[in-house]
Design a protein around this nucleic acid. Sequence first.
DNA 1: TACGATGCGGACCAGCGGTCCGCTTCACTG
DNA 2: CAGTGAAGCGGACCGCTGGTCCGCATCGTA
Lengths: 213, 213
Amino acid sequence: MAERSPRKDAARNRAAVLAAADTLFTTCEHPDDVTMADIAAAAGVGKGTLFRAFGDRTGLIRALYEARLEPVRRSLEEGPSPLGPAAQPLRRVLAVLDAVLCFKLDNRHLALALEQTGSDSPYRTEHYERWHALLRDLLDRIPGLPDGDFTAHALLAATRADLVTYLAGEKGLPRDEMRARLAEFATRTLSAAPAPSPEAAIEGITPDPSGTR
Amino acid sequence: MAERSPRKDAARNRAAVLAAADTLFTTCEHPDDVTMADIAAAAGVGKGTLFRAFGDRTGLIRALYEARLEPVRRSLEEGPSPLGPAAQPLRRVLAVLDAVLCFKLDNRHLALALEQTGSDSPYRTEHYERWHALLRDLLDRIPGLPDGDFTAHALLAATRADLVTYLAGEKGLPRDEMRARLAEFATRTLSAAPAPSPEAAIEGITPDPSGTR
DNA sequence: TACGATGCGGACCAGCGGTCCGCTTCACTG
DNA sequence: CAGTGAAGCGGACCGCTGGTCCGCATCGTA
């Protein structure tokens, strides 16, 4: 039960690995061409050390990600108004989305690496749950907005790392313009519209377009 | 220059591989535990044949995906009104989104496999370009809607295979409910709102939340 | 200083996508 | 229908990856 404090060299190595991995991921073109062996070599440790400290590749990336995320999380929990808990829901939703987008832009390599970890979906990670829950709660508090849960997922989907990377890289969309677009999109989504025919639009044509089956 | 027609056995093998791969992907839990060797074995051919016919893993999956997509594409191009070109833009956008969602639900394993092909982003594929272009054009035709390009991306992002799989699987969200939620979300997004303060919301707080840098 | 526990490291392993090349099978020709 | 060149086949083989393992070094404590 008692938390055993880590040995000094272990801590040092852990830090070295994190630092090395960080620069490698940031430097490289594609996350896949950073191998575990590369990281170990760059950090000046053996592969075993690396796996002992982080379990597996996903564990390492996740640790890096969470570390980078720390300041953002703090801002969310106790920061000043647009981001912090004091802000009114709608405004805060926009601020949070913007923060997420900026984070993904600043850390695209990491986010990319994390989101395309084949084995497990990016939706069962701690930070996604946190973001989603926060957004959902805020959305539920906006009057006239049904269905905060799905809306939160959908809005977050617009900040997916590969989309963001694609828009920023391939299409050369400047950072601030992208932020403006996302904000505009979210604003439109959240403006409590009378919803002309929410389900009539879909239930009306419901024969299920799957011609395939 | 003249297109050389394929040999009979080659065609037969190609079909066998596609069929085998299809059932394997549909059956399995996670795309990654279907290996190329598995597919070759199930199809009763050698691995070489398989790579000769499709180039690489991504090529195979893409071929499968496109094949499944054919009926949908046809419906879009020449189908009856809600989906076909005759429908009015807003209605058609909703129909297209619904069709995409249904397709992804019906073919989640394939879509999952394709979207998480590490090496290249899912955004440079032919079918994504097609969907995006179609939606963008429709959106641009809706009065009072700025920025069809980004909106199209954002709406499509809500149908990402892993999200859809997560909602349908982990959270047990029934198919029709999911369709309704998406339709409702899109409807809200597209209701030409006066946009209370589209850029004021973001430009007003613009100090860039990246405390990390 | 001695000594257990903790951590280290790199040889090692299994399994993957992908290649290669000797052999088979096709389809066309005389 | 036999002959023939090319197209296609298959599975042994390769390079490389994430991950394991265990003899040995290092740490913190008595």
